[in-house]
Design a protein around this nucleic acid. Sequence first.
DNA 1: AGGCTTGATGTAAACGATTACAAATTATTT
DNA 2: AAATAATTTGTAATCGTTTACATCAAGCCT
Lengths: 329, 329
Amino acid sequence: MARIKEVAKWAGVSVASVSRVLAGHAGVSEVTRQRVLEAVKALDYRPDLAARRLRSRRTDTIGLIVSDIRNPFFTEISRAVEDVAYQHQMRVILGNADENPEKEALYLDLMRDENVTGVILSPTLPTLAGFRADDYPFPIVLVDRCERETVADAVVLDNVDAAYRLTAHLIEQGHRRNLFFYGTTSATGRQRQEGYTAAMAAHGLEAQVEAVLATVDAARAAATARLNDRPLPDALIASSGLILLGLTEALQEAGLRFPGSIALAGFDDMPWTRLVEPGITVIAQPTYDLGQAAIELLLQRIAQPEKARRRVVLRGELRERGSSAKRGV
Amino acid sequence: MARIKEVAKWAGVSVASVSRVLAGHAGVSEVTRQRVLEAVKALDYRPDLAARRLRSRRTDTIGLIVSDIRNPFFTEISRAVEDVAYQHQMRVILGNADENPEKEALYLDLMRDENVTGVILSPTLPTLAGFRADDYPFPIVLVDRCERETVADAVVLDNVDAAYRLTAHLIEQGHRRNLFFYGTTSATGRQRQEGYTAAMAAHGLEAQVEAVLATVDAARAAATARLNDRPLPDALIASSGLILLGLTEALQEAGLRFPGSIALAGFDDMPWTRLVEPGITVIAQPTYDLGQAAIELLLQRIAQPEKARRRVVLRGELRERGSSAKRGV
DNA sequence: AGGCTTGATGTAAACGATTACAAATTATTT
DNA sequence: AAATAATTTGTAATCGTTTACATCAAGCCT
């Protein structure tokens, strides 16, 4: 394996010149530049990243901490982050925190050990409480989950608005007794619940909410329990994709068809929401865009550490499908 | 930020002793061990990973190269790999090669630059052709895709067997004219096609196969075209989750119900295969186990480079659902 | 008691790059 | 043509560890 020393010797220049050429620094003549490039090619030289990182104190690595990569929402975000990162010759280290604040802290620690250039984080509520980006030795961009106050750069959906529109749509379709299921561990659940409640109130309807763990199983169990209510709710609303899956399973197990027996709607457009007949009405999140925006915001923050905090808010898209069809009178 | 030097001074020992204690090396007395540990805690010392990696020439990092993390199959594999890796204090670098051999080569190059300890790779067919693990400066474990010859450590499904069983099941249910869709870019498609063909032949039936790009869109388009055939096939079989999704969409768009108009079955059990009524019959792959086996195999290979090559073969599980129900005579 | 292991510790040389600084060369100005 | 500025190059220090090797003390054996 060739080292910078040998490249320098081959090209008949000093190691400094080689380093300068490879770093793209100015102040090196065209003739040596060419000679160095030739030597690099001839020897198939690859700079040793460990050495570079040690001396330069830059790792060109960013950390991505999410709850679970298997959640399609985060899968897509991770893909976006990786795409952009690699375009900028940066690496990504992923952490699955499983909605567990301790694991989040653990991974943040690990990111410190790795001396990452920056972190993208989708925090649980406990971590978010009292969170200050300044407490960390690297820039942090929050994604998906963030309280109102601008305590860190963030990229989020307009959750209140999206939930409002989804709920209003159901009401317009004649569904009045709508039961809202939301996850307890993330800030989005709360915000979406707010939007739901506001929409209900705006139409003079009483809000009914059910807080559950943000997992498929918990949602299914909670829904199954509520399906014994009489009269049945007009509609179930899920504040996330995992919960929507749980509700759908519960309805199917209970033998309830939608929208005939009960209407259904929720967040996140997944492959199957179109497929489950007659299609499930959802708010589609611009997931890839969220991830892309997050890393681009992070890269900007890295380039300009003193710039004012920013908060990017994206809008969800209502996709009307059969599951919310008009209620017969 | 504390350095090893300061820890040594605080503890009243040499840097060598500190290093030895932290590396867990033998030959250090209990009293200095304790003193060093105390100092580490007091100064909140974290060894600099770049320096460590430079000097020790070990990165404790493994590379994972798959086609697309958004394919649930690989999402799950990646989660398994990361879980085990972190348990062993190792990092994971992910590469999405998008079924593109050039990108695969690019990521393999990148892994070399990163001086990774090992790589887990799910190669395309072109990369697999003439692939030799020995050509790389790190151990490689193939996952999911691998030709017969043992040219590298590998963890795969028994694809021929699984496809055979799936096809045989359909035939037993009375479906005789079964059309098999498989992806052209991966070795699994071929192997599954073999199993399918063998099962058809064993029952005196003629195989009918359709090779498509392994994407949802390509599968949907190909299926839509074939749905004009008269008479219709008795059943469609998909050789992968993405293709199965495409077929399902095509059937739904064509207004064909299964198993009434046509039966359906395929590979990969996904959240929605249960949900799309009356449920889709699939071969469930032990995805997490595949990933886990792959990294464990890799770790063993790293520990014992000279050990004989190994090939782990896992078995798929047939999950019978409504979509393959008995055909009325 | 003196030589010989054994075990614990310290010293200093790596690892392979980047980069501050000095030196050398060339171009520009007066 | 000398003085000055600008550009290009090289030397050597440095990043923070690990680890080969030397050293030293203590225990054991004859």
